[in-house]
Amino acid sequence: MQTARRVLIVAYDNVQILDIACPSGALDIANRFGARPPYRIDLGTVGRRPARSSAGIALAAGQQLEAVTGELDTLMVVGGAGYEEAAADPRLVAQVHRLAERSRRVASVCTGAYVLAAAGLLDHRRATTHWGYGERLAARHPTVAVDVAPLYVRDGNVYTSAGVTSALDLTLALIEDDHGPTLARAVARELVSYLHRPADQAQISMFLAAPPPGDRLVRDLSGHINAHLADDLSPRALAARAGVSTRHLTRLFSAHLGTTPARAVRAARTEAAAHLVRSSELPLAAIARRCGFGSAQTLRQAFLDHYGMGGDRIRRMPDMPRPRTPGGAETPVP
């Protein structure tokens, strides 16, 4: 029987429960889908005390950090509202430092990066955290190269990720490193994840880059566009869905998103297609269909309009390209 990969998730009071559920759930599914060697997942706290999440749900710890011995495959420190107290707790920080020396790799989710930084594990490394907490992390730890743009960052054997659901993207990347892309994609499908977002995808999408639309109709339509890229998203169809005229819809998008419905749809489709080009082996025609383009040629033109380059170059680039213009090109959408 193959030796299990020991994964220890470190928690504390006022932890974000999703930061624990995303990685542990994905690793559990990987085990059920045949990960060999399998992952052995434990939750650890100082003194093996239950960790009360910020949602009020208490999580029983299976491991007392001070008593953990032997080698670990992955040490993961999660984030949450209690990150300040956790990073200031000398017992927790000392155990994280000690256990990191026993681990093949170390990771953090969201503000768990503050604990890694307090333990000296991010010194002279590039790291990320939730976009709203990066400036404070950089000011507190000037030897850490904080970059809040990507979803997750790998620097050597240390991984840091952005807020909450990016823990899933990070964990899928770890599964792919360990077992290959086929298993990682199978886990993503089981989790009904639209796609495994690459590390260099921006934390903030085009609909979140500005303050959230104050108009509920625009906000609901923005979510509908991102979730239904292959559907009919013409201005007429969107207006009908919202129960307004196309002229009024255009006024609302201009006021709250600074663009037209056609440009917003085309930009969302183009950016989703670019992420699929970089994170999958799907042919361009299949990506075009999935993202709502009529043909591969139409998608190629969208890439040229939006990024100034074609799909082959996007696939070869080390980082995600940046759009030439925020709203993309004004092109009719089917």
Rank of each mutant, 00 (worst) to 15 (best):
A255D: 15
P23I: 09
Y194F: 09
S54K: 05
A237P: 07
E135D: 15
A139F: 05
A237Y: 03
L284Q: 05
L122K: 09
P198H: 07
Y83Q: 01
L27H: 03
I314K: 01
P142Q: 06
L208D: 14
V244F: 00
G258F: 07
A81V: 11
I17L: 13
R269C: 07
A107W: 01
E271G: 00
P211I: 02
D200F: 02
A237M: 03
R263S: 11
L282K: 08
P326I: 07
V333L: 07
A60Y: 02
L174K: 06
T165D: 02
R189P: 00
H228W: 01
L65E: 12
R32H: 15
L27I: 07
H97V: 08
A127L: 04
E85W: 00
C110S: 13
S54H: 07
P90G: 05
P334F: 01
R197G: 01
I204H: 09
V265T: 11
R236S: 13
T260A: 04
G156C: 10
Y152T: 06
S161A: 15
F207I: 12
R104N: 02
G223S: 05
G120N: 12
L304R: 15
S205A: 12
E101P: 00
R219S: 14
D28F: 00
Q201E: 15
Q297D: 14
S279H: 02
G292K: 08
R91Y: 00
E190F: 13
L59H: 06
M1N: 11
Q203V: 11
L282G: 00
R32V: 06
V144N: 10
I204L: 15
G180N: 06
G112Q: 06
Q301D: 13
G163R: 03
Q95K: 05
A186S: 11
D89F: 03
R289N: 10
D232E: 09
F253K: 05
A162G: 14
P181C: 01
Q201M: 14
R40I: 00
I29E: 10
E101R: 15
V148S: 14
R52I: 13
P334Y: 00
L121H: 06
V218I: 12
P334N: 13
Q203E: 12
A285G: 03
Q2K: 02
E330R: 07
P23E: 02
V158C: 06
T250M: 01
T143L: 14
A88H: 09
A138Q: 15
G258Q: 06
A113M: 02
R32E: 15
T325K: 13
C291Q: 07
V115A: 00
G311Q: 10
A240D: 13
M206A: 13
R40V: 00
T182N: 05
I41V: 14
P181R: 10
S103L: 11
A267H: 14
